[in-house]
């Protein structure tokens, strides 16, 4: 009897220790700070672009005298849905809220922080719910990710005071609830992005035109998504359209596995390929805000170490190029070490 109790006690201790280890991993160090910061910048910038794209037509698309009347927009709201634009019928109210979206997005992009994230979430949801006809798909993902971002520290990089904030984070020794929430929210952002890509890849692979490899040909022929004649012409090429169609499916289906991979080059290659795809969508199909939001989401798929290794690689390539070009551009009295220290503001080893 005492043996069973001891065994149970041992099992319980082992279980709690393992659980503690998991919690400690989530509670002691904030992960994916660079990815979430990039996502913050991109969401803010894309929202500003979204508003400015039809700034002169804003009253027609979102105003009280819009073709999409307030009563129609209200009937299209989902249960528990809201939009600050629908709270008033006056043009003044509309102008205040519309310009608040632009200003808050800019502040969110520059400063970040939980309060601004919450404000951005409310205003972005309001804008999207005011007129759902002009949404592009990336908005759906941004609406979900911004809710998770409320729990993250999204201003540890690329924000005013980011360096100070990082120094303070390093000083903090003990595990905190804030760190747990940040890490779990960052995990949810990556998880949601992975689900999106896997679902998108799945729906593509089950479609006849994608299987035939001619999907890109048909997409390039639709007037609304035809931004360049060269792109339309290139997509008539059998090999090229098939290669792009299959490559798109491959990188989308591969993303969840790449994120889980221990090899960083797989994650980086997959993410860069997706970002390239979205740059192509922005340039060739004219879906600029959509492409930007998706690039922002892609950025969260890389770990902080991945970004650091990319920066290291970039710097070493740059230094090599500088060294090679040195004989052509002599700098008398200055060694390469001194030049590097001067540029980086850091002492060399």
């Amino acid at each position: 009897m005492s043996g069973t109790t001891a065994l149970l006690g041992k099992g319980w201790r082992a279980g709690t220790e393992r659980l503690d280890a998991v919690i400690l991993r989530f509670a002691s160090h904030k992960h994916r700070l660079i990815g979430t910061a990039l996502l913050r910048v991109v969401i803010g910038f894309a929202t500003i672009l979204y508003c400015l794209s039809d700034y002169s037509k804003r009253r027609f698309l979102w105003g009280p005298e819009s073709y999409n009347s307030i009563s129609t927009a209200r009937s299209a709201l989902p249960r528990w849905g809201f939009s600050l634009f629908l709270w008033g019928h006056s043009t003044v109210w509309f102008e205040i809220v519309f310009h608040a979206v632009i200003l808050v997005s800019a502040a969110f992009m520059i400063f970040g922080g939980r309060v601004l994230t919450l404000a951005q979430a409310v205003l972005m949801w309001s804008l999207h719910n005011r007129n759902q006809d002009v949404l592009e798909g990336g908005d759906n993902l941004a609406q979900i990710l911004i809710l998770f971002m409320v729990f993250t520290v999204s201003n540890a990089y690329f924000a005013v005071g980011a360096k100070r904030r990082r120094a303070r984070m390093r000083e903090l020794e003990q595990p905190t609830t804030s760190t747990v929430l940040h890490n779990l929210a960052a995990f949810l952002i990556v998880f949601q992005t992975a689900v999106l890509y896997f679902a998108a890849g799945y729906w593509k692979i089950t479609g006849k035109v994608w299987q035939d490899g001619v999907a890109m040909y048909y997409i390039s022929r639709i007037t609304g998504f035809q931004m360049s004649a060269t792109y339309t012409h290139l997509m008539s090429h059998a090999w090229l359209t098939t290669a792009i169609s299959y490559f798109t499916i491959f990188i989308e289906l591969a993303l969840p596995f790449a994120i889980l991979s221990a090899r960083s080059w797989i994650r980086k290659a997959n993410t860069l390929a997706l970002e390239g795809m979205h740059l192509g969508i922005m340039a060739c199909m004219g879906l600029v805000c959509f492409g930007l939001l998706m690039i922002g989401a892609d950025c969260t798929c890389l770990r902080d170490e991945d970004y650091r290794s990319i920066v290291r690689r970039y710097r070493s390539v740059r230094d090599r190029l500088v060294q090679r070009s040195r004989p052509l551009l002599p700098t008398p009295g200055m060694t390469s070490v001194a030049m590097a220290a001067d540029r980086d503001g850091a002492a060399g080893a």
Binding site: I23, F26, P175, T176, T177, E305, R315, G348
Partner: peptide, 29 residues
């Protein structure tokens, strides 16, 4: 040559033992 750390993760690795987890953190986590 300027030497950059291989990974910041190593620098910022958890410095606390599991015993340091407070009840509040444990419950919220």
């Amino acid at each position: 040559m300027r030497v950059l750390p291989r990974s910041r993760a190593a620098e910022d690795a958890p410095r606390t033992a599991s015993g340091a987890l407070s009840v509040n953190v444990r419950i919220s986590a």
